[in-house]
């Protein structure tokens, strides 16, 4: 357990040292937040609420997705793959810490660092420009925090799984591009899922992608309550369990393959 926290700590510190990169990423996400918000405002015009999503909610949605991109690192994460291709994976597998936990530790540190120097400042600045919605109670804040932690676990397990492809093929980048494309499509990243037809929105909600981006945002802007809220958390837990188990099974196969064929 100690090694796990040490990994988180180191990774967190490292993330904080990429100051220029984080600053430039912050500005970029902020600008994209402005673009998307402008489009949503143009769509809503005089209407105040569509499909239960208010214009304020929609704008908050735009700011929040951009704040969370860096934290969740949803669409671009090939770090593990690179270690497989340049051979560092050998040393990593020899560490006295579970390989999955090792990378999870790194990812938690990275995510936390990114949240502090990129996600939070971005949302703060964004909120100067727009009249956004904030959670109204401590309970809602806590539920949001919990949903974010779960979301990171889902997002990480998915990325871990995708990166494992590099144990089998020298061309896993292509697989990654496809897999991350899926998260792109189903997470509700482009436009709020609430604005989609119900059948599509409901489907997206069930996927690990909707569960890790759309759901936490819904909790934040408070348009999900009661049974639906519980259901959302259950879906998150389902995906965490499934992906973690699946990840470990695939990992075991991959390690076997790596040992037998020597990479």
């Amino acid at each position: 357990m100690n090694a796990f926290f040490a990994t988180i700590h180191t990774s967190f510190r490292r993330q904080l040292t990429y100051r220029a990169a984080n600053l430039s990423g912050l500005f970029t996400n902020l600008m994209f937040g402005f673009f998307r918000a402008a489009v949503l405002i143009a769509l809503y015009q005089e209407q105040t609420s569509v499909n239960g999503l208010s214009i304020r909610g929609a704008i908050t949605y735009a700011g929040l997705t951009q704040s969370l991109i860096g934290v969740m690192s949803f669409f671009h994460w090939y770090d593990l793959m690179h270690t497989v291709y340049d051979g560092r994976v050998g040393a990593d597998l020899l560490r006295p810490i579970n390989y999955f936990s090792y990378w999870l530790g790194i990812d938690i540190g990275r995510a936390f660092g990114s949240l502090i120097i990129r996600g939070l400042p971005l949302f703060l600045v964004f909120s100067f420009f727009y009249n956004i919605i904030l959670p109204e109670s401590l309970i809602q804040w806590s539920l949001f925090a919990l949903s974010i932690v779960f979301a990171l676990l889902i997002s990480f397990s998915w990325r871990f799984l995708v990166n494992l492809a590099s144990f089998w093929t020298p061309n896993a980048l292509g697989i990654g591009r496809f897999a991350f494309g899926l998260s792109w499509i189903f997470s509700g990243f482009y436009f709020p899922l609430a604005l989609f037809p119900d059948w599509l929105a409901n489907f997206c909600r069930l996927t690990p992608f909707g569960a890790s981006l759309y759901f936490p945002i819904q909790v934040f802007i408070g348009n999900i309550r009661g049974a639906e809220l519980l259901q959302g958390f259950l879906i998150q837990i389902f995906w965490i369990v499934t992906l973690v188990i699946f990840g470990h099974i695939i990992l075991a196969q991959g390690v076997k393959k790596l040992v037998i064929q020597g990479g």
Binding site: Q47, N51, N171, R177, I185, Y190, F191, L195
Partner: peptide, 30 residues
């Protein structure tokens, strides 16, 4: 695998437009 990749890229990117079209259908025009 090249053809697969090209087509899947086209699909993934095209979804952004599809998402916009679906959203726009709720509003009519932009």
């Amino acid at each position: 695998s090249f053809v697969m990749e090209v087509l899947s890229q086209a699909m993934i990117l095209g979804f952004f437009f599809a998402a916009f079209a679906l959203t726009l259908s709720q509003f009519g025009d932009i």
